[in-house]
Amino acid sequence: MPACFAVLPLMFVALCTAQGASSDGVDEHEMFPTLALKVLKYVEWNGEAKVELGQKIRVGVYDRTRGQAYLKVFASLCEKYPQAYELVDLTEAEVSDFNFDMVYIAGKLKLPLDLLDSLAGKPVLIVGEHAKILEKGGIIRLQVSSLRKPEYGINLKQAKSLGIKIESRLSRGAVELIR
């Protein structure tokens, strides 16, 4: 049964990838939420590897993209693993509790600076696709290479300042690394 839980999301991701690939090679809104959740296992918050410890991850998603495709993918993934993830939609609702483990900022067009300000100084892994996100307080930026392969960049300096530790295994594969 656990194998089904492991295999089914991958199959789903693969199918999405395959559908995305059928149009432009990569469907970021299908692939990036998965990758965002995958990188959580390389992350420690104040010395706690929450994924390995089995602690529930509070995930916030800001998605102003058309159709909120990212949010849907996140929602479907989190619904599958309710004991692992708590999903909070940060797009419209007023949020008073910014005690998140990860916040994903979808889309490449505009950064929600208010949100970023709200998260500033908090040990929240901010993942996004915007080109300037690493400069504006983000820690991981996901992108697609010229060969249509997923890539990522990491702002280790920002992570370190927030008490977040990124495993070297992950950082070794980063295409952009800010120390």
Binding site: F5, P9, K41, V51, E52, L77, K80, Y81, Q83, A84
Partner: peptide, 12 residues
Amino acid sequence: SLETGEQFGVGS
């Protein structure tokens, strides 16, 4: 693997 969410709650 420690795939997304697959180990949560198992206490491995």
